[in-house]
């Protein structure tokens, strides 16, 4: 094969668009990284040191992690049985549920948070009486935590539902369920020992997307007045120059680490499910 033939076979345009796309994503990241190292030429990692020395960083970061874990657990408890039941018994409801799961893309987070505050900032009383049986959720910390996790479950729903639904599509949920039932398994055993292990890659994928959304979320956390990582990063950006760049870069690294984990886990299961 001569050079001209090789040149003709080279997918020039595909590569050109790929490189332009890659540069669009990589250049800002490189610029951020380069900027985060430029605070003190004698100590390029000074911005990272300062950021990590700040207790507010660790507190807000850990708090966001806990919120993310709670969101993931609640999402799995709500969405896995729902997606499972729709695939198994209510396929006609799938379009309606898919529409509902898309709502967070249509309704902005600011509307959601105002709605939450409006409804849950008044005391809960027995209808037609003045008997209050619960204070407003916004009035105490645990109540606010419940509210914010509820809000995050809604925001993460499109990602979690699609991940779980796609995972269920790759294994024959109906037949596996019937096989388990004929062997004597009840619903709890079927879900925990047959369904969940076979969609673990999809669950992990949904969980990591949820994690990324919650850790970086600003609107809900700001308006509900919690010290989460998103508002902290936002405030830091208003008063400092180098630390926000360092923390942004660290966030990217964490996301990439998460993506790597998804690839690692999905690769193994894909082989098992694919030949089934």
């Amino acid at each position: 094969m001569n050079f001209i033939t090789r040149l003709r076979k080279f997918p020039f345009w595909s590569w050109l668009w790929f490189i332009i796309g890659a540069l669009y994503f990589i250049l800002p990241l490189l610029a951020t990284f380069e900027f985060s190292l430029s605070w003190d030429p004698a100590n390029p990692l000074k911005a990272y040191q300062r950021a990590f020395e700040d207790n507010r960083f660790w507190n807000s970061f850990m708090y966001s992690n806990v919120l993310a874990l709670a969101t993931i657990v609640v999402s799995i408890i709500l969405i896995v049985p729902t997606a499972y039941w729709i695939r198994l018994r209510l396929p006609q409801a799938r379009r309606i549920v898919e529409f509902i799961t898309l709502m967070p893309f249509v309704v902005p987070a600011i509307i959601l948070v105002f709605g939450l505050i409006r409804i849950y900032s008044t005391p809960f009383s027995i209808p037609f009486t003045d008997v209050v049986f619960m204070q407003p959720l916004t009035n105490f910390k645990m109540g606010t935590n419940i509210l914010i996790v509820g809000g995050y479950v809604v925001l993460a729903m499109p990602y979690m539902y699609r991940s779980v639904d796609t995972g269920m599509r790759t294994v024959d949920i109906r037949t596996l369920t019937e096989a388990s039932q004929s062997l004597g398994a009840n619903w709890f055993v079927i879900i925990t020992r047959v369904i969940l292990p076979n969609i673990r890659a999809a669950l992990l994928s949904g969980a990591l997307l949820t994690f990324a959304i919650v850790v970086g979320e600003v609107t809900l956390a700001s308006f509900l007045g919690v010290n989460a990582f998103g508002p902290y990063l936002f405030l830091l950006g208003q008063h400092r120059a180098y630390e926000p760049a360092a923390l942004s870069f660290v966030s990217f690294l964490l996301t990439w680490l998460a993506m790597g984990l998804i690839q690692l886990v999905t690769g193994g299961q894909g082989q098992a499910a694919g030949t089934h």
Binding site: T175, S182, L183, G184, V194, P197, N198, A272, H276
Partner: peptide, 18 residues
């Protein structure tokens, strides 16, 4: 089905992949 003690073999095998 789980209370009948009836064994079933499916066309698509239905083995648990995990």
């Amino acid at each position: 089905p789980n209370q009948r003690n009836v064994g079933m073999v499916f066309q698509s095998y239905a083995l648990f992949p995990n």
